[in-house]
Amino acid sequence: MDKIPILRMGAFLLVTIQVDLYDRLALNLESDLVQMVSKTDAKGVLIDISAVSIVDSFMGRIIGNIANMSRILDAETVVVGMQPAVAITLVELGLPLKGVHTALDVEKGMNLLRSKMQVLEEEEEDLNDEDDNIPV
């Protein structure tokens, strides 16, 4: 049985899809990834689809699902490296991948995830500051 490897990089999970996906493989990736997020307490998921030449409605739905499920588990998802022809096709198909963050390449995707983490940390600090200021 084929399996897509999920790599851990600090607080992030990295998935590089190098093969053509069929439905079962994509479904397995979805459940593996969501379980990994919960197990490793990951704060971000980066999915590299630069080697994927076809994203149809099923595959697009899986990507959207992964992003939504991860968000519920407190992790952001970034999809990177989409081929231009795939982007054109997705929009014409009627699937603009709403709610999924995207970046051009892995490096930019990593930066996006890091900046999102920083924003979160700052918000937490702000909240703590406010707690301190409450008069007794």
Binding site: S53, I54, D56, P84, A85, V86, I88, T89, E92, L93
Partner: peptide
């Protein structure tokens, strides 16, 4: 061309599913 190829194969993929 690559864009038309991708469109064709994506459409085919939907129908075969």
């Amino acid at each position: 061309g690559l864009v038309n190829q991708t469109k064709l194969i994506t459409a085919a993929s939907e129908l075969v599913r």
